[in-house]
């Protein structure tokens, strides 16, 4: 079977096996890399520039979203020369406001959709949800897969749903959230990654942030290997977004080491790698200021929008 992208769709029941113990061992090697001095500063700046600053709460207000959008472009104005974050990530109802606030800054607006976070809605609702977000001006759509269908091995359903949403996205880039905390095994993570990429994902993303565990390095590593295999098989580059749980600089740097050594420097840009996080930015800022001034500043010196 060939899809319209011109590559053959594999049998997803035969996705490569993943050995958890081996993955843990590989990940521990990334964690042992010691990132110092200039490479640390370069890594921290990269991390800042890859953040999707996120607020996904029922109690979000236009005011909160505006403030977050300001922060996205002015991370820490007392220190000049810092990059902006990559994007802000909000619910569809907040897209329009966010879009106005970040206008001209290069910061993208990402919207979750498809009945985020559970995905428990019929397809036509998911299509409308996505269409609304795109019409409001979302540059990127973060959809969730139907985990229930996936776990009952209805892979065609999951594939078709992603492919349909991809069509609705138009020019917006599609990130597919696997919600790996509900998939449980790394074999499942690998299979879901393959399905998402072949169905048309531009990015694959670990989690909604609503379920634990979220973006563990083991899960992210498994997805990075899937991306590498997909690139080798089809020539198409896919982005990666670990989301949820990456709250400090050290973890962010270890993630970047993992990307660097698994996929290569081609992925070390916010075109192809993102952190879905809300509290990471301030920790990175704190580390940058420590490197600049030699002393740690209290968290009260960093704005918490």
């Amino acid at each position: 079977m060939n899809n319209k992208n011109g590559f053959e769709i594999p049998d997803f029941t035969r996705s490569p096996a993943v050995d958890k113990v081996g993955v843990e061992e590989r990940v521990s090697r990334f964690q042992k890399r010691s990132i110092k001095n200039e490479s640390k500063m370069q890594g921290l700046r990269m991390a800042l520039n890859m953040i999707d600053l996120t607020t996904l709460e029922g109690k979000d207000t236009p005011g909160k979203v505006r403030q977050m959008c300001y922060k996205a472009q002015h991370l820490h104005d007392v220190y000049s020369g810092l990059p902006t974050v990559a994007a802000v990530c909000v619910y569809p109802s907040m897209v329009k406001i966010a879009k106005q606030e970040v206008k001209g800054s290069g910061v993208k607006v990402a919207s979750v959709s498809t009945a985020f976070p559970s995905g428990q809605a019929p397809l036509d609702v998911k299509i409308m949800d996505t269409k609304f977000a795109v019409d409001q001006g979302a540059d990127e759509i973060d959809m969730v897969i139907s985990r229930g269908r996936f776990l009952s091995a209805d892979y065609n359903f999951v594939f078709d749903e992603i492919a349909t949403i991809k069509e609705v996205c138009g020019k917006a880039r599609l990130k597919v959230i696997l919600e790996t905390g509900e998939l449980v095994t790394l074999d499942n993570v690998r299979r879901a990654s393959d399905i998402a990429m072949y169905a048309g994902a531009d990015f694959i993303k670990t989690s909604t942030g609503k379920i634990q565990p979220a973006a563990t390095m083991q899960v992210t590593y498994t997805m990075l290997e899937a991306i590498r295999d997909f690139m080798n098989a089809t020539g198409k580059q896919i982005g990666m977004k670990p989301a949820g749980g990456i709250s400090n600089s050290k973890l962010a740097l270890h993630n970047l080491v993992m990307v660097n050594e698994t996929l290569g420097s081609k992925w070390l840009t916010n075109e192809w790698f993102r952190f879905g996080a809300s509290s990471l930015a301030n920790d990175v800022l704190m580390q940058i200021m420590k490197a600049e001034t030699g002393v740690y500043q209290s968290s009260d010196y960093f704005a918490i929008d």
């Binding site: 010691s34 490479s39 370069q42 990269m46 520039n49 020369g81 420097s265 070390l268 840009t269």
Partner: peptide, 17 residues
């Protein structure tokens, strides 16, 4: 000076540790 935002993948070599 304001630094240009990184939007191309760049080489990242680890400093000696």
């Amino acid at each position: 000076a304001a630094k240009k935002t990184i939007n191309q993948g760049v080489e990242w070599n680890y400093s000696p540790a």
